Simulated scan of single mutants.
Amino acid sequence: MKLTDPTQTLAALIRCPSVTPQDGGALSTLGSMLSELGFSNERVIFSDTGTPDVDNLYSRLGSGGPHLMFAGHTDVVPVGDSGAWSHGPFDAQVVDGEIYGRGAVDMKGGIACFVSALARLIERKGVPEGSVSLLITGDEEGPSINGTEKLVAHAAARGERWDAAIVGEPTNPDQMGDMIKIGRRGSLSGTLTAEGVQGHVAYPHLADNPLRGMLTLVDGLMHPPIDAGNDRFPPTNLEVTSIDTGNPATNVIPARATARFNVRFNDIWTAESLTDELRGRLEQAAKKTRLRPGRDPVRYTIEFDERTSPSFLTRDEALIETLSAAIAEATGRTPALSTTGGTSDARFIKNYCPVVEFGLVGKTMHMVDERVALSDLESLTGIYELFLERWFASAGER
């Protein structure tokens, strides 16, 4: 395999059926590539109650500073109906200038491009003056319990320190060079239960329909808007994802209704202040009687999930400007600096060093016929190579 060719490195990774939490040989394949470049590799398996064991890889080249981390994951989502794919989801076939396969975009492609960028830089100029590490998990598409969060803590406890990090998730909406993620909104999930009194639909005065109460509570959570956002983040947004009574009958008023919701929030809030805000809204909404005339306040309970992701924003100008300049030179585009989208493993890395995200175009991620243009692989490899060369060169001047 020619490590300077991102198509070849990506094909080798795609051919590993690493559907989370199974490794499928992906970490061994990646570790062999890195060993060829001079990296030392450490495999670490983490476990936790109620979750599958997960294999992880930490690789480092060099021993001194400055120290750059590249983070990502080799696990992929299930393929769905494999018969619906135009080409085998783990065959890595190249057709009409695109390579097909699960993980091509999310995110084996980003890993492949970083490996090839390093191989090119080492071939052209030798090993950078400093250290490069790869922190790769098999748990990003799963519960994210036995992966990056534990791996970065494990490495830090062993004495590893980093000056900056890039996560290679697909960040570009339409074309290479569109966007760098310089932060992420927080994520808070909750379960809301409205209590009622079961009864016959023909005799509603003898019952108390909890769906009326639930609609009142949900309206209170969603209106008025939680905030208007700011110059760093879009407005906080709450989405109800399910409302259920477990009631199969059409002539029975159920005893209770349960709703699940998720809030993606900006840096106006902490998890604590946001939960206080939502509790206050529910307390006020429970007293409203438009859907429940003559009734006492809605009886309800609210539980928030313990695993809340905080919002964060990276302000490291050297990291952001060096990456932006590399993107502009390679693509002719000035990338937007964004905090949109969902959460990523960058939320675990932010506590150890400044972190940004930049990778491929994300249009086909998680889809049938996930694929990436070979020209995009070449573009991302070139961007990473430029960035690596300039970041290490400028580190000595800072």
Rank of each mutant, 00 (worst) to 15 (best):
L278G: 04
W269F: 15
D81M: 04
T381Q: 14
N172I: 05
V127S: 10
F304G: 02
E321W: 00
R333M: 08
E303F: 01
R60M: 11
S187Q: 09
D231P: 00
E385Q: 15
R290C: 03
E306L: 05
M214G: 07
G359L: 06
L278T: 08
H67G: 03
C353Y: 13
N247G: 02
I383G: 00
V152E: 15
H366P: 08
P173W: 10
A84D: 04
R102Q: 10
S82I: 10
G97L: 00
G25N: 04
V361H: 09
M214R: 02
T148A: 15
T331P: 11
T343Y: 09
S144H: 03
E370R: 06
G168L: 15
H223L: 09
V240E: 10
P210D: 13
I302W: 11
T343W: 05
A318R: 15
L57G: 10
E397R: 14
N251M: 07
R299E: 12
W269P: 03
F265I: 05
V95R: 12
G109F: 06
G147M: 09
A71M: 04
G177E: 04
H200N: 13
A328M: 11
G130C: 09
L278R: 08
P235H: 08
A119D: 10
R290T: 13
A228W: 07
V167W: 06
G168H: 05
L274N: 12
R256A: 15
I302E: 12
R184E: 14
R102P: 02
R158M: 10
E169C: 12
A257K: 07
G396W: 07
I226Y: 05
A325N: 12
I268C: 13
G80M: 04
T339C: 12
M179F: 07
N209T: 09
Y384C: 00
V76H: 06
P225F: 04
T308D: 04
T49M: 08
A104L: 04
I180E: 07
F392R: 01
P248C: 07
E140K: 00
S47G: 11
